[in-house]
Simulated assay, not measured.
Amino acid sequence: MPSDGHESGVLAAVANRRSHSQVTAEAPTQAELLPLVAAAARAADHASLRPWRLIELRGEARERLGDAFVTASVCTDEDAAKLRRKPLRAPLLVAIVACRRDDTPVQVWEQDAAAAGVAHLLSLLLGAAGWGVMWRTGPLVRAKSVRLVHALAPSEELLGWLYVGGVPADCTAGNRAVIDPCDYLSAL
């Protein structure tokens, strides 16, 4: 099948993907984010359930998340201050929520995989649009106070946050080791 040139753009976006642990104070607007979310929704999704939702956290919402981190932890004042600052490392956090449904034969793990697929595609799309992105998780993802900040339903699980911001001018792309695909692809 001949290439229409579209595949090379996708391959380049994936090959150039990297996590940006530090970003600037710039962030995409909701209007800029919406078409990327629409495109990310094309991720593989068993039975087209769309078992996911995304939550934008900007401004004070990030501060409330930092407070929830502290509430969920037993720590010193110094550690509490560090925890409280974690959500402030990016101007935009996009929470990835798996919305698990039991009214379908689609297994929960498949529903979670669909939600993770949306998150990964969204991170690729944001990166291709010139934004710095890092998917962050950790033990506090499952904390009660963190669930409350996100107003999660009992059937929902937080899968982490995409930390999104501008790419610093002095950013140098990290080099990830290239794999030998033969080590990871086998046939039966």
Rank of each mutant, 00 (worst) to 15 (best):
N175W: 07
L49F: 13
V108Y: 07
S8E: 15
A173Q: 02
E110P: 00
Q107I: 01
A27R: 12
I55C: 11
Y163T: 01
H150Y: 04
P181T: 12
P139K: 06
Q107G: 04
G174R: 05
A119P: 04
L185Q: 10
A13I: 03
S145F: 04
G160H: 03
L33F: 07
D103I: 06
W131M: 04
W131E: 01
L126W: 03
R142C: 10
L162E: 04
S145Y: 05
V10K: 11
Q30P: 13
L162S: 03
P105M: 11
P91Y: 00
L92N: 08
P91C: 04
I179P: 14
E157H: 14
C182N: 15
T71K: 00
V74Y: 12
G165S: 11
V106R: 06
A40N: 01
V108H: 12
D67R: 00
L33C: 02
D67M: 05
A119W: 05
R64W: 01
G138S: 00
L83N: 03
A43R: 04
P35S: 07
L83H: 06
G130E: 08
A115D: 03
R62N: 03
S21L: 10
L92Y: 07
P28M: 05
R62G: 00
V149D: 02
E156T: 00
C182A: 15
A15F: 07
V178L: 12
V14D: 06
T76S: 15
E26A: 15
P87W: 01
R101P: 08
G165P: 09
S73P: 03
P2S: 15
S155H: 14
A31D: 14
V108E: 11
T24S: 14
L11S: 10
A27F: 07
V164W: 00
F69H: 09
P35D: 10
K144S: 10
L126T: 02
L36K: 11
D170P: 02
D112A: 06
L83K: 09
L54N: 06
D112N: 06
R142H: 15
Q22A: 11
L49G: 01
R136P: 03
L158S: 10
H6P: 01
L65F: 01
V164I: 07
G5E: 11
A25S: 14
L124R: 08
L65D: 02
L11A: 11
W131T: 03
L148R: 15
A27K: 09
T24K: 00
L54V: 02
H150F: 06
L88P: 12
